[in-house]
């Protein structure tokens, strides 16, 4: 029983990060109509941003975090205006290819600057485990979960309650009608990209004590986030969080009860199974949609 709970907690904490990445896919898919395959690379950018701010510049984490987030926002914005905005009216295939191109570009840009070697990152929240009964919980697990859920709740409050948030949803649902309301569609698209970059980057920052910081980190994490988004139904924000967490739990049980070599394959298995048996995901719209 303890082992089960231990694995569950581990899974939820990892899944919360997958959920953060997944929600970035969903936000952009809803607003832009195609998947953003550079979303995973924003996770990697986040990891390098915190590496620069904390390890290289030696800033304390409380200052390094906001700086790293701002770096992610800026890079997300630059990518949006340089690569995606010119294609706003292009067909889906071209935009999809653009996102793949941006991903390759970011990955290799970072490789040129930092090299392909992995960088270790110190623990963010300390390594002293908290004992609850017989369970040992490391602070990282608690914080991942709290921050993951916290950000998703903040995001949904932002989208549901604020004027700008509502107009972003309107823009995602019907761009032309939104323009007729006087909504600045370009600005809203930029904000959407900035928010999803920041969320992805945040996941990257939280993940770097667990993984090494390498330029290909984004491919790995991007696939997990994508699987989570698809499992949740690619159009639903809460769905993507549920999808991410489900994936995290599945992985954790896979590793715990079978072997850790199973873990890496689970995201792909989920991807295949969802595409075949549950194309609308857990909370997605049931109607057929353009890819």
């Amino acid at each position: 029983m303890n082992f089960f709970l231990q694995q569950l907690i581990q899974g939820i904490s990892m899944g919360a990060l997958y959920g953060l990445i997944a929600i970035g896919y969903v936000l952009i898919y809803n607003a832009w109509g195609v998947l953003n395959f550079a979303q995973g690379d924003m996770v990697m950018i986040g990891a390098f941003a915190i590496l620069i701010a904390h390890v290289y510049m030696g800033l304390p984490l409380l200052i390094a975090f906001p700086i790293a987030i701002i770096m992610c926002c800026i890079i997300g914005f630059l990518v949006e205006i340089s690569a995606f905005r010119p294609l706003i009216d292009a067909n889906n295939t071209r935009r999809l290819i653009a996102t793949i191109g941006v991903g390759i570009f970011l990955r290799n840009l970072v490789r040129v600057i930092f090299g392909a070697d992995p960088y270790p990152f110190p623990s963010i929240f300390g390594n002293t485990a908290v004992n609850i009964g017989e369970l040992k919980i490391i602070p990282q697990n608690i914080w991942n979960t709290v921050i993951g859920f916290g950000l998703v709740i903040l995001l949904s409050i932002f989208l549901k309650q604020t004027h700008i948030g509502k107009s972003m949803r309107a823009t995602a649902q019907d761009r032309e009608a939104a323009r007729l309301m006087g909504i600045n569609v370009k600005k809203n698209m930029s904000i959407t990209f900035i928010i999803s970059s920041a969320l992805g980057g945040f996941a990257g920052m939280l993940i770097c004590p667990v993984f090494f910081v390498i330029p290909t980190l984004g491919t790995l994490m991007g696939n997990k986030g994508f699987a989570g988004a698809l499992l949740g139904g690619i159009t639903s924000n809460p769905g993507s969080m549920i999808g991410g967490i489900s994936l995290g739990i599945l992985e954790s049980f896979g590793a715990g009860y079978f072997s850790s070599s199973v873990q890496a394959g689970i995201a792909y298995a989920v991807l295949f199974l969802v595409l075949i048996f549950l194309p609308a995901g857990l909370l997605g719209k049931k109607e057929s949609r353009k890819v």
Binding site: A170, D174, E176, A177, L180, M181
Partner: peptide, 24 residues
């Protein structure tokens, strides 16, 4: 302009749709 095909925001509530009309 009330456009052809209505083009209301399907996933916003009626109130939110009206709020968007008054966006500016």
């Amino acid at each position: 302009l009330s456009p052809e095909g209505r083009r209301i925001f399907p996933d916003l509530t009626v109130t939110e749709n009206l709020e968007m009309g008054a966006y500016l």
